[in-house]
Design a protein around this nucleic acid. Structure first.
Lengths: 155, 155
DNA sequence: CCTGTCATGTCAGTTGTCTGACATGGGCAA
DNA sequence: TTGCCCATGTCAGACAACTGACATGACAGG
């Protein structure tokens, strides 16, 4: 089945390798974030908020690749612990723009540096050209997956 | 923080893109596996077992990037539903070699083809050379992450 | 021999994420 | 205006994965 063209050969599958890479990255991030008392999703939310202040719950969810329900419980915890603030009610619509508090910003600083060090380690053996090429190729895979989104379920 | 060299710029971060790609792949796989009544981990376990018969619980766990505890509950469910068999007790050591049943093999056939179609879609716009390059680059990232494993926690 | 170490299988409890559901607000067309 | 559709925020329950813990068997060293 793995060599007849209809199956998946794990040894050569780019999909499998992609999962492996993602898993290795996540594990490495967890290792450096744990001493800081932070989880990966926790960090992702803060980092996203630092770079795009005012994002709503749903937008943060999309940016961190979780559901808006999951992001909601995380945001409530972050708000309770004073890392993030949200207005009590929306000025327009229902979207509540979130902001980092000074404490949230401070907490993010070390975490961001730690994660950066992981990324540097991951890219250690690659030239700038190779990194650019990897970016281009991965971008292409994402776009291909999304462009025909749902076609397989219609057939 | 994102441009001073110590932080992470999400727009250009290979780590973030890697997570995005992995998430997109997972979503696409879930979409085609759901009609077959199968989850991604479910499928991964069966596929691994088809290509490497006799793998133990712990080996399957490593191959699917989950803990052996998680794989254990999955294996017990697969055994209960007749997709997999394991000997009652180990011939040597404690490792129990698992095998696909005919039913498991049948169930895997459609799933494997469906997943293959997703991978084909993902790689649709890429030449063979580009695919080989993507493989090489991803392999390098994984190796770099693993080679210095734990160094960050020792410092 | 036995003793420490390691990997394994498994049980139990906790945590994180998801699906399902509901109400609300904005935008658009009739 | 009215009605419809869509996105959002939120609550509740279900499910999946994790961490912690324990016992067992293989192996190497004293």
């Amino acid at each position: 089945m793995s060599q007849d063209g209809t199956g998946v050969d794990l040894e050569t599958s780019l999909g499998y390798l992609l999962k492996e890479a993602s898993s290795a990255l996540r594990t490495a991030m967890e290792a450096v974030l744990r001493p800081l008392g932070m989880t990966v999703t926790h960090y992702s939310c803060l980092e996203l908020l630092a770079q795009r202040p005012g994002l709503s719950n749903s937008e943060l969810a999309r940016g961190t690749f979780v559901t808006r329900q999951s992001m909601n419980v995380l945001l409530q915890a972050l708000e309770r612990d004073g890392f993030v603030t949200r207005p009590a009610e929306a000025r327009v619509g229902k979207a509540l723009p979130a902001q980092l508090t000074p404490r949230g910003r401070r907490s993010l600083e070390k975490a961001s540096a730690a994660v950066r060090s992981v990324e540097v380690r991951m890219l250690g053996g690659m030239s700038q050209q190779e990194q650019a090429e990897a970016f281009r190729l991965l971008r292409g895979m994402v776009d291909s997956l999304r462009s025909a989104e749902g076609d397989a379920t219609r057939g």
